[in-house]
């Protein structure tokens, strides 16, 4: 039993790291640029489709993984210049409408180009199979690789944000954009850079998802909702919050799915227990969000003095 708990905990961390890859960009864009980008999930999908196409054509997962980053960045650059830039000074409703339109546009465009049949990415030879952890249970190597890539991205972001000059400007901009602009920082350049970096993380997450799940139109939307939950729990604009929120959501969701049926089964008959558990576990993360928002309305790691 403790072995199962540990394995599910690992599954939860893996889901959390995966959510973090997408949430990191979302929270940066929302926190620094004050833009609600609903099309962030579309960038995730673009990453997944690029790896499916490129690795399908070249036969190599790794070439696909490397090339999907510039492809996503290019897509993000076009989106930023054409759609997002005119929206900086507009209110959130306009941003929601425009980026929701983008979702429809990108989804339909992908359907026209790629068709409705799901695409598949082959698992790289080096990461397929499973490893035995602590001599007791085997765990898929690829899922460990997702955890590792999440940790690497978190470390890179931590370094940039806390140790570099650009990071200082980002932190300052998240707190008060106008003053940073008045101090002579090139806000437009920084905006584009942040949008591209966020998009590349989403693209990376999409590419990592490829070998695990089918690559299909609309795959980013469900994920996007989860990621909004992550950044709201963590505190908008905070990378640390996004990491913490994503891990919490991942673990709560996985643990709920695994253990609620047996917990409820202790005092309900099996059929209704599994029925109620299925419903409860899909609600669990939203319940968590409600609880966090009641106790800490700005999230667990609010950005100090943020003026939005």
């Amino acid at each position: 039993m403790s072995q199962l708990v540990f394995e599910q905990f690992l599954n939860g961390i893996q889901l959390g790291m995966f959510l973090f890859l997408v949430s990191a960009g979302l929270t940066l864009v929302f926190g620094f640029m004050n833009i609600i980008n609903l099309a962030h999930g579309s960038l995730f999908m673009i990453g997944a489709y690029s790896i499916a196409l490129i690795s399908g054509a070249t036969g190599s997962f790794w070439i696909g993984l490397i090339l999907c980053l510039p492809v996503t960045a290019l897509a993000a650059f076009i989106i930023e210049v054409l759609i997002i830039r005119p929206l900086y000074t507009r209110d959130h409703l306009d941003q929601v409408l425009a980026t929701f339109g983008l979702i429809l546009f990108i989804n339909e465009g992908t359907t026209m180009l790629m068709g409705r049949t799901p695409q598949f990415v082959d698992m790289p030879e080096a990461l397929s199979g499973s490893v035995t952890l602590f001599g007791v249970f085997s765990y898929p190597l690829y899922r460990l690789a997702i955890i590792a890539s999440g940790i690497i991205v978190a470390a890179i972001l931590w370094f940039i944000i806390t140790k570099t000059r650009v990071g200082m400007q980002i932190r300052a901009g998240t707190t008060n954009r106008e003053i940073v602009q008045q101090l002579g920082v090139n806000i437009d350049g920084l905006n584009t850079a942040i949008f591209l970096v966020g998009a590349m993380f989403a693209g990376l997450a999409g590419a990592m998802a490829g070998p695990l799940t089918s690559v299909e139109v609309g795959m980013g939307e469900n994920l996007l909702i989860l990621c909004f939950v992550c950044i709201v729990i963590g505190g908008i604009g905070s990378i640390r919050g996004a990491l913490f929120g994503a891990l919490t959501v991942g673990i709560v969701d996985t643990m709920g799915r695994s253990f609620l049926p047996s917990i409820l089964g202790a005092f309900l008959d099996p059929a209704s227990a599994s029925g109620i558990a299925a419903g409860l576990s899909s609600m669990s993360i939203y319940l968590l969000m409600v609880i966090v928002l009641v106790l800490k309305p700005t999230g667990l790691f609010p950005v100090a003095g943020r003026i939005s």
Partner: peptide, 17 residues
């Protein structure tokens, strides 16, 4: 006996069970 979500893509938790 496990009920999953309709349209679920990741089955890591179920497979562990």
């Amino acid at each position: 006996e496990t009920y999953t979500q309709l349209g679920q893509t990741d089955y890591a938790a179920e497979i562990a069970k």
